[in-house]
């Protein structure tokens, strides 16, 4: 399963943190900064898999041959888009390459929702950002991988605000009424 989804920018400021197992805020911060330290030193040509940060590595037991999987997070996949890093922390039950695709779908769906998405969109419309993630991953389980369905799912929850028109008000009320009829 996926243990956490993180998005932070080039200077390590978090834009989205979603931990599917709850941690203390301070531990979350440490984890983010450790991962950022790892990720920010990687050249663009490097592969998109990170070694475990010290916080996680210290507690990870070595895999045993008769038990192929376990509950400990063992895989950190990241992707770097312009100013943002997208990071997935997951257990060994996820496929590394598929996770890369998942990040791609996530970003593409954001792009579709915001039309040419940028970091500011994510800052001011964090609700839409979280809604998109909520359409794809529930409780660490991936529930949707198709771009269209994610986009329509988020749109179904209400209007997605466009940039430069009163940022902060994410969803209009009339949108809500519309979905109520549309979904039934």
């Amino acid at each position: 399963m996926i243990n956490a989804v993180l998005v932070f920018n080039n200077s390590g400021q978090p834009r989205l943190t979603k931990f599917y197992t709850q941690l203390d805020t301070s531990v979350q911060q440490r984890l983010i900064s450790e991962i950022f330290a790892l990720v920010s030193h990687r050249p663009a040509s490097a592969c998109n898999f990170l070694p475990l940060p010290p916080l996680l590595a210290s507690t990870t037991p070595p895999p045993t041959p008769n038990q192929p999987h376990n509950d400990t997070p063992s895989l950190i996949t990241y992707r770097h888009y312009a100013t943002l890093y997208f990071i997935l922390i997951s257990t060994s039950t996820e496929s590394p390459l598929a996770l890369l695709d998942l990040i791609q779908v996530f970003v593409e769906s954001l792009d579709r929702l915001f039309e040419n998405v940028c970091e500011l969109d994510l800052i001011f419309n964090f609700e839409t950002l979280h809604a998109a993630l909520g359409e794809m991953i529930v409780g660490g389980v991936v529930v949707e991988t198709s771009l269209e369905k994610v986009v329509s799912g988020v749109k179904g929850q209400g209007k997605v605000a466009k940039r430069r028109e009163t940022p902060g008000i994410g969803v209009g009320v009339e949108g809500l009424g519309a979905i109520g009829r549309g979904w039934r």
Partner: peptide, 27 residues
């Protein structure tokens, strides 16, 4: 290592210019 990879470092909170750049894979 970082400055080589990333080029300019925009800070989203301070000015709204750099984050306008679209999210495209770095090449």
């Amino acid at each position: 290592g970082r400055s080589n990879v990333l080029g300019v470092e925009p800070v989203a909170d301070s000015d709204g210019e750099d984050p306008e750049e679209t999210l495209r894979p770095t090449v």
